Deep mutational scan, measured.
Amino acid sequence: MASQGTKRSYEQMETDGERQNATEIRASVGKMIDGIGRFYIQMCTELKLSDYEGRLIQNSLTIERMVLSAFDERRNKYLEEHPSAGKDPKKTGGPIYKRVDRKWMRELVLYDKEEIRRIWRQANNGDDATAGLTHMMIWHSNLNDTTYQRTRALVRTGMDPRMCSLMQGSTLPRRSGAAGAAVKGVGTMVMELIRMIKRGINDRNFWRGENGRKTRSAYERMCNILKGKFQTAAQRAMMDQVRESRNPGNAEIEDLIFLARSALILRGSVAHKSCLPACVYGPAVASGYDFEKEGYSLVGIDPFKLLQNSQVYSLIRPNENPAHKSQLVWMACNSAAFEDLRVLSFIRGTKVSPRGKLSTRGVQIASNENMDAMESSTLELRSRYWAIRTRSGGNTNQQRASAGQISVQPAFSVQRNLPFDKPTIMAAFTGNTEGRTSDMRAEIIRMMEGAKPEEMSFQGRGVFELSDERAANPIVPSFDMSNEGSYFFGDNAEEYDN
């Protein structure tokens, strides 16, 4: 993207840094990872977990959730003011799984939030270390993106479920800051804005008074975040219109849905970061690795190297396929839920299948599930090659597409044709070009129609051997075009429920 120079890199967003050079960025990201790792080690000690239990991804998720809940100030305040039966607002906890007599047992633990905050700050040299908290939120978000298709949420806001490739980060909490905003897809931002506008339509006082002023500035800020994701002048001009509207209503909703559809071809720039579970960072720190000293990046080879040398386990339900569970977590670790499966298959070195073909449910185990038949197995999170994460949407291309997802959002900077089903997408653009945004709409449609099938995206960008740390010898991959490109292809993934 041309304006790259004016933006802070995501590592800076990730670490609240002012302008830093590459070495400083690597050190501050490393410091953040160190903090998460030290916190995780301490929690495993508190909970008396064995090494194996500490490497269980379900335990990692519970521990991450506990610290996120302990620092969720708004919710904590709300819980104190609106006490609900049987919930102690000062405590947080969740299921911890232990191996007892050759069987997995679930144990519900409860801790004072104050105590968890103390352990977290102690692991982070006394700081609140917001960057580390956001990092864990993005890992949870990436896992949700890989596990669930947001059909219901899309339909509720009037969008087409086939636009799911635009929904990265749709389950990120509001408090995820600049680093969170960077990884949100165009569809996620559109959905947040539509929800806001709908509230304004239904509630006369939404934009009024002292609160209304705050609401208005939040609305304009979200519009600017979305505008910054678009790469064409016409899309940005249309966002200006939406932002400046005196009284946002149905016309703005129409414009936003139009823009979301246009992003299936004229893709937005959305950041991709490899955020790993805390149970990967903990053992690495415990083994003596100093992330701050060595430096770390979320968008280069580092996460690949770390996963190459990590042992992570997962509980497996009786009829689940461990290899499929591994694929789910591998995609989440690489922030690749909406990437082209052919690119992923090449990088991973084994075939990556669409969601609907995987015999696996989510990673988390519900409290009512029976533990008797639970097994555990090693997650295979290694890769054959590594590639640089991208934040450009890439230019655009036609490809055989599917009944489910009709476009992709690249996660890796790797040369390819970008699949999208042009006739299906263009069919949504018939007729409606009147109104105050008509010239911009016409211009956007013209650009979409001009998108050429034979153009290559990320020209000359390749993948790298894991021994090639400096990215000196790019390998331009070859793809098996007979395979499906979309992950949520004609899909039956479970729906995400809060």
Rank of each mutant, 00 (worst) to 15 (best):
S141W: 07
A237H: 14
K31C: 12
A451S: 00
F291E: 01
T6G: 00
T350C: 12
V67E: 11
W139A: 06
T378W: 00
L259T: 04
E380W: 14
M456W: 14
I253R: 04
V299Q: 05
A85T: 14
L276F: 03
P474W: 03
E115N: 09
A387F: 09
V190N: 08
M167V: 06
V183F: 05
A22R: 14
P354G: 08
T424D: 14
N370S: 06
I119C: 13
R317T: 04
R384A: 10
S287E: 06
K87T: 08
R74V: 12
Y296K: 03
M222Y: 14
G158N: 14
M196K: 05
S170T: 09
S50W: 00
Q364E: 01
F479D: 03
V352K: 14
V155R: 08
N483M: 15
E369R: 04
L344Q: 10
I253F: 12
L315F: 12
G86Q: 09
I316V: 13
E292Q: 14
I33P: 01
T171S: 03
G93M: 12
Q405M: 13
N483S: 01
V29A: 14
T360P: 10
G177M: 06
E465L: 00
T134M: 10
G94P: 07
F258P: 04
E107K: 07
E210A: 05
G177L: 08
R391D: 05
L79I: 14
N397T: 11
M481N: 07
A442E: 02
S377C: 09
M196F: 08
S217C: 10
A178M: 12
E11P: 01
G158I: 07
A178V: 12
L315M: 15
E24H: 11
N492I: 03
L47E: 07
D421T: 13
D421V: 14
D302R: 09
D34C: 14
T62D: 03
H272T: 03
S345Y: 06
P161I: 02
S335R: 03
N417I: 13
G490F: 05
F464C: 02
T424Y: 03
D101R: 11
D497Q: 00
R216S: 10
R267W: 01
W104C: 04
R38N: 08
V363F: 12
I33E: 09
Q311Y: 02
R156E: 10
E252V: 08
M374S: 02
V343E: 04
A366D: 09
E375G: 11
Y148A: 05
D480K: 14
D255H: 02
